[in-house]
Nucleic acid binder design. Structure first.
Lengths: 140, 140
DNA sequence: TATAACGTGTAGTATAAGCTATAATTGTTG
DNA sequence: CAACAATTATAGCTTATACTACACGTTATA
């Protein structure tokens, strides 16, 4: 049953995506905070994510272990080169997903909401299809 | 900053979606196994998901606690009314997402792969937009 | 029918992600 | 410059999801 194997591989891929999902959300948010306010503080990240700050501290620890951010005790959070690159990739992808949803008639708020969940599971091929559609003539 | 609040709410929604995601995958898969082979065995579920069987056993326990499945020791797994309803909703949604991805030019395999991750994060509004697009004239 | 093979369950471990409560540090201000 | 407010860190707990290793039941067959 090769179908079952392929399905198992798909589920596995989704599980892997989940592991990077949080990292992506964090670096994207940290980049956003740095760009807009000059620095990323744990408290701000917590507020924006809607979680308690110790949760953020632990997550930052993991991100640091994985080479995505750098932080010193009682200082603000910085992105490494890798982290910054990931953030930019995510931001671009996020914008494409939102733009695409808007294009097919989803309202701004729903588009932002759905994109937050969808963006982590979009392959390059699908992303390219989204871009194609965005550039195409109006639908309807 | 109402923007920050809305963003926090969006992230919160995604985290909630994650909690139901696994349940959705399980019931959909169990329904599929029952319909195609007559029964759902833990081993088959494990193989299809690509995880070890104790993982499935624990998950089934949670699903049972949540009223989605019924199972007795050393017997196969059954869906409750609630579980069956969820499975059908998921199956329909899955098919719409795949159909939609195919329509915009994503190949079968990638569509299946991406849909597995995307489907859990698609609102009713977005789903409706997908359906509209599927029914529209060919793109390109 | 006894046993081997397979399926299922249990125990124990790890990691991630969340929380509350408490401690430590920093920075601001009286 | 001392004290207080705000931020950051730590400790300890919970749940979910994964794993391996081992024990127990069922089923099929020799």
């Amino acid at each position: 049953m090769p179908d079952a194997d392929r399905q198992a591989a798909n589920f596995q891929r989704v599980r892997e995506a989940h592991q990077t999902e949080l990292a992506e959300d964090y670096v994207e948010l940290i980049a956003d905070l740095i760009d807009s306010t000059g620095e990323a503080r744990a408290t701000d990240v917590a507020r924006r994510l809607g979680v308690a700050h110790p949760t953020v501290v632990k997550a930052i620890g993991r991100l640091q272990r994985d080479g995505l951010v750098e932080s010193l005790p009682y200082r603000s959070i910085f992105l490494t080169e890798t982290g910054r690159a990931m953030a930019e990739r995510c931001k671009r992808r996020h914008e494409i997903v939102v733009g695409f949803l808007r294009k097919i008639g989803v309202d701004e708020e729903t588009a932002e909401r759905d994109a937050e969940g969808i963006e982590h599971h979009v392959s390059e091929m699908t992303l390219a299809a989204f871009e194609r559609l965005i550039r195409s003539k109006p639908l309807g």
